[in-house]
C-alpha cells in the first residue's frame, strides 16, 4: 500500500520535473559531453569533426600568444576587481547599517547600477566617458590634466572594464547588508564591555559572522567575473583591443568559435575554463572549514 503510493508520487514528481529533465539532458549534460569530445577535434561546422588528440590544448598553451594574453587579461580582471568589489560592498554596507536615515533610498540608488551594468547601453556610455574627449577627461581638464583616450590605450583600457564591474557592486552590497542585520547587538555589547573598540569589534565579531556571505559572494562574483563579455565586446567593438588589452577569455572564445568557426578549439577553451573554475570552487569549499563560520556546530 505504502510503496504503491510512493510509486505513484514518484511518477507524478517526474511528470512535474519533465521540462527540467529534458532541458538538463538535451541542453546541459548532452552538450557538455559533446563539447568534451569536440575539444579533441578540429571542427568547422562544414566538414565532420576530425580527431586531433591533444592538439587544441597544445596549441593553446604553446603556440597561441593571443590565448595566453586572454588568460592574463581575465586573471588580472578577476584578481583585481573581485576583491575590490567585495571590500567596496562591505564598506558601504557597514556605513548603511548604523540605523541611518533614508536607508531605503540609499539602498535603492546603490543597487540600481547592478541592474544596468550588463547592458549594451551602459557599455556605450562607458565607451564615451572614457574616450578621448569623454566625461572623465573633461573633468580632469578642469584640473589642468590632459590625457588621451582611456579605452584607446592598451595601458588603461582594461581598467575601464574593471570600473564597469565595480560600478555594479550593489547586489553584493545588499547581500552583505542583509547579513549585517543578523549580527546580534548583544555580541557587540559584550565585546564593548570587554573594552574592544569599533575596529576591533568589526574584525572580532562582525567579520567572523559574515564569513558565510563573504564565501558566497566571493564564489559567485568570481565565477561571474570569469564570464565577462558584453562590456569588453562593446567597448572594444568586438576586437578585444587595443593590442589585445581587453581580450577577455569569453571574447576570445567567441572570436575563435563563432567568427572563425573553430568549434573544436573553442570547446577546448571552454572545458579548460570549466576545469579551472571547478578547481577554484573545490579549493574554496575545502578551505571553507578553516575560515567560514557556520554557527555553533553540534
Amino acid at each position: 500500500m505504502k510503496s504503491s503510493r510512493t510509486g505513484r508520487e514518484g511518477l507524478t514528481a517526474y511528470l512535474f520535473l519533465s521540462p527540467w529533465l529534458i532541458g538538463i539532458v538535451l541542453l546541459t549534460l548532452g552538450p557538455m559531453l559533446y563539447s568534451a569530445y569536440l575539444a579533441f577535434t578540429s571542427y568547422d561546422l562544414l566538414s565532420p569533426p576530425r580527431w586531433i588528440g591533444l592538439d587544441n590544448f597544445r596549441r593553446m598553451f604553446t603556440a597561441d600568444p593571443r590565448y595566453l594574453s586572454s588568460v592574463r587579461v581575465t586573471l588580472v580582471y578577476v584578481v583585481v576587481s573581485v576583491p575590490l568589489l567585495l571590500v567596496l560592498s562591505m564598506v558601504l554596507a557597514l556605513l548603511l547599517n548604523k540605523g541611518i536615515r533614508f536607508l531605503s533610498g540609499y539602498r535603492a540608488l546603490f543597487y540600481l547600477p547592478s541592474l544596468m551594468g550588463a547592458s549594451v547601453a551602459i557599455a556605450v556610455l562607458w565607451r564615451q566617458i572614457f574616450g578621448g574627449t569623454g566625461l572623465v577627461n573633461q573633468v580632469l581638464s578642469l584640473f589642468g590634466i590632459t590625457r588621451g583616450s582611456w579605452v584607446g590605450s592598451p595601458g588603461t583600457a582594461l581598467w575601464t572594464i574593471v570600473t564597469l564591474n565595480l560600478w555594479a557592486f550593489g547586489a553584493t552590497m545588499i547581500i552583505f547588508l542583509a547579513g549585517l542585520r543578523q549580527v546580534p547587538v548583544e555580541l557587540h555589547e559584550a565585546a564593548a564591555v570587554d573594552g574592544a573598540g569599533p575596529i576591533r569589534r568589526f574584525f572580532s565579531v562582525t567579520l567572523p559572522l559574515m564569513t558565510p556571505l563573504i564565501f558566497f559572494n566571493l564564489l559567485l562574483d568570481t565565477i561571474h567575473a570569469f564570464q565577462a563579455f558584453t562590456g569588453a565586446f562593446v567597448v572594444s567593438r568586438g576586437s578585444g583591443g587595443p593590442a589585445d588589452s581587453t581580450l577577455f577569455y569569453t571574447l576570445y572564445l567567441y572570436q575563435q568559435g563563432f567568427a572563425e568557426l573553430k568549434m573544436g578549439y573553442a570547446s577546448a577553451m571552454a572545458w579548460t575554463l570549466v576545469i579551472v573554475l571547478a578547481a577554484f570552487t573545490g579549493f574554496l569549499f575545502l578551505t571553507a572549514k578553516r575560515w567560514v563560520y557556520y554557527g555553533d556546530e553540534r
Partner: peptide, 30 residues
C-alpha cells in the same frame, strides 16, 4: 514530492548554478 534520485537530482541542480555557460555554448550552437 518524494521521488527516487531526489538528492542526486537536487545536487545536479545546484551544480548547474555554478556551471559557466561557455561549456554548453558551442554544442548548443551546433
Amino acid at each position: 514530492l518524494e521521488f527516487p534520485l531526489k538528492r542526486v537530482l537536487f545536487g545536479l541542480l545546484l551544480a548547474t548554478m555554478l556551471l559557466p555557460y561557455h561549456v554548453t555554448l558551442v554544442p548548443q550552437y551546433i
